[in-house]
Design a protein around this nucleic acid. Structure first.
Length: 281
DNA sequence: TACATATGATCAT
DNA sequence: TGATCCTATGTAA
């Protein structure tokens, strides 16, 4: 389930297992055999997440930087599986396997990766080039939201499409864009440039709130508990976790109006005709 | 066995 | 705008 929160969460959890460790690397599927061979037996010095990208800084077996970075982008289907005990055999599509090399009696941690759009080895300048193409990341405490504001001000593009543009803001995906626009009471078809600066900053602040929550919990829960008659966000039934995403024909949690869906640029979006004043409805 | 589906992004036309 | 790439899963046939 890879929007930005998932990527940052993977980085945080994998750091605990991998950083400072020597790891074996191989490619069960074979399509990353050469890359895995270059990484095999080296150490992981750091793992960094930015937007939907992951960078693993590699070192030699004694920890010296090699100038090689494992770069991963999960795309739509990419998945990690982590095993702290003896792992099962990898699935056929497993492109990369990493396993920590521990002492005699420790099993080590094994991580399998399948389905990713990008698995390659890049140099530090290439990492910088990729970062340079990305807008500010709501999960980066040093991010500069004014870059997002500026990007929105100069775009006639509908805000619903602009939010998916990783050059404008990085890490937002199809679930968060729909949910953020509902929470802001905005029609996704509104041209980005028509929003006030306060509205754009409001979207940024909400992205920070929601992605941080998602990074902590590993799930995307966007409803305010009061809207579904609850006291907390814990263990909500599936239909009560979100306001609009995949809730077409279901009643809005705030006003009861049936949620509608449409598909601009082959990315389905959902909205409440009443709460978001949908022009198309 | 087949097909639909998925929280992404790029490239060609 | 449409085709394409990536893989696993659930449902239908």
């Amino acid at each position: 389930m890879p929007e930005g929160h998932t990527i940052h969460r993977h980085a945080r959890l994998q750091r605990r297992h991998l950083v400072g460790k020597r790891v074996a690397a191989w490619s069960p599927q074979g399509r990353f055999a050469d890359g895995a061979a270059r990484l095999d037996g080296g150490t992981v010095r750091d793992i960094r997440a930015v937007g939907k990208h992951l960078f693993y800084e590699w070192g030699t077996s004694d920890g010296t930087a090699t100038g090689e970075l494992l770069h991963i982008h999960l795309g739509l289907f990419g998945k990690f599986r982590t095993f702290v005990d003896e792992p099962p055999a990898p699935t056929e599509g497993t492109r990369l396997a990493l396993r920590t090399i521990e002492g005699e009696d420790a099993a080590g941690t094994t991580i399998y990766l399948a389905g990713a759009t990008v698995v390659d080895i890049v140099s530090p300048p290439e990492e910088e080039a990729i970062r340079g193409r990305l807008g500010p990341d709501p999960l980066d405490r040093k991010a500069d939201p004014s870059r997002f504001v500026a990007a929105m001000r100069r775009r006639r593009l509908p805000i619903g499409e602009a939010l998916l543009d990783q050059k404008a803001i990085s890490g937002i995906g199809n679930v968060y864009r729909a949910e953020m626009l509902f929470r802001a009471g905005l029609d996704p078809d509104t041209p980005a440039a028509d929003l006030t600066e306060d509205q754009v900053m409001g979207l940024w602040d909400d992205a920070v709130t929601l992605l941080r929550l998602g990074e902590k919990s590993g799930r995307i829960v966007t409803v305010e508990p009061a809207d579904v008659g609850r006291r907390s966000r814990g263990r909500l039934p599936r239909d009560e976790q979100r306001y609009v995403y995949k809730r077409h024909d279901r009643p809005c949690h705030r006003c009861g109006t049936p949620i509608v869906m449409w598909t601009p640029r082959s990315r389905t979006i959902w909205g409440c005709p009443t709460c978001q004043g949908l022009a198309r409805a």
